[in-house]
Design a protein around this nucleic acid. Sequence first.
DNA 1: TTTGTTGCGCAACACTTGTTATGCATCCGC
DNA 2: GCGGATGCATAACAAGTGTTGCGCAACAAA
Lengths: 207, 207
Amino acid sequence: MAPKVKFQKENIVEAALNVVRTKGIDAVTAREVAAELGVSTRPIFTYYDTMEQLKADVYELAKSHYQDYIQRGLAWEIPFYGVGQQYLRFAREEPELYKLLFLTRPSEASGGAMEALVFTQDLVRDSLMQIYNMDAHTADCYFRDLWLVVFSFATLIVTDDCPYTDEEMGRVLSEVSLAVCKAYKEVPGLPEGRYDRDAAFRELVQQ
Amino acid sequence: MAPKVKFQKENIVEAALNVVRTKGIDAVTAREVAAELGVSTRPIFTYYDTMEQLKADVYELAKSHYQDYIQRGLAWEIPFYGVGQQYLRFAREEPELYKLLFLTRPSEASGGAMEALVFTQDLVRDSLMQIYNMDAHTADCYFRDLWLVVFSFATLIVTDDCPYTDEEMGRVLSEVSLAVCKAYKEVPGLPEGRYDRDAAFRELVQQ
DNA sequence: TTTGTTGCGCAACACTTGTTATGCATCCGC
DNA sequence: GCGGATGCATAACAAGTGTTGCGCAACAAA
């Protein structure tokens, strides 16, 4: 009765996400997405009335990729540390998706930075409450410290050549993570000085 | 011999900066800037061959505003703390300029986040070396901690409704600043706990 | 007052965007 | 096979962008 459908909604959203990956959210135009699929612009508008709706779906797909990264971080030996590392990894490997999720205002796409932040905070809070028997408020305070560190690093990574080495970023992150562990677990004595704690952290991880 | 010039280059750059302030850098179009001045688009192109050149000047003007904020921070009782506070103030009062300076890639305008970061780091390093007799590397480490905190807060402020109150941000900032003072000055004993140090900091300031 | 220069308003050009009208070609039910 | 519903390519439209030609009118020198 009708010709077979060549492209599903999924294909279009994935193509649009690939455009974001390579050229950023501003390059997500009807013609650009169509070219990515090797199609005309027509099929896009059989699934979407406006490009805004497509962008909203792209945003959701990007968010689910982000959530995958963070979930994997929870599986690390020290989940608090793992979440931070995975956050940085997301920024390195998917900088344009990072910018879409965290550096654009809600109006332009949907959601906004707050949404992903709250998602992450909920995960970390649950993890801290469960592992360290921490109360919710304290957990949120520690999450805030983690967030301050990794959010800065990640944003520097995606907006410019980051002035800090991966090694330095890892060290600072481990220091913050260690502070959490130290506060709620008896941890082997720390070396003196604020910037030499990574060794102690490695010891802790090896236990 | 010729009609009097109505608009100087300066007027055009300032008008463009006002457009950035109210509608963001993407709204800086020839017609928008002309409307801001109540002129046609023609005068813009007597001073500039392309809009990109105008945007470069706008970027420089925004940077000088930023530098004014930071310079004022150095005049505070505790310059390290003052710089952080002024950085947050800049984000609150000039969010679009902040986004232009710190959340866009170098190619789009000129400069990029690194340029402003290096400028700020130089100022803070000099200040720390002078006041606390700190060596350059240590000063940069402390600057890094300050930067991590305020850069995260500021970026949250301009990209979304920040989940942290001004009071909480000020508290964390004072905590970081206090760590600097504590390391290089004998400071009255700190209350226990990682998140109650603002009282001690206030004491310090009152001395 | 005249004259020549030239800043600027007007309006056009080329281009890119979202969105849509048209018509071809496909392919399921018969 | 085959008819018709319909997915899709083509190409157009309107709106918005940067940029530029045209011509008026202002104004300093004569």
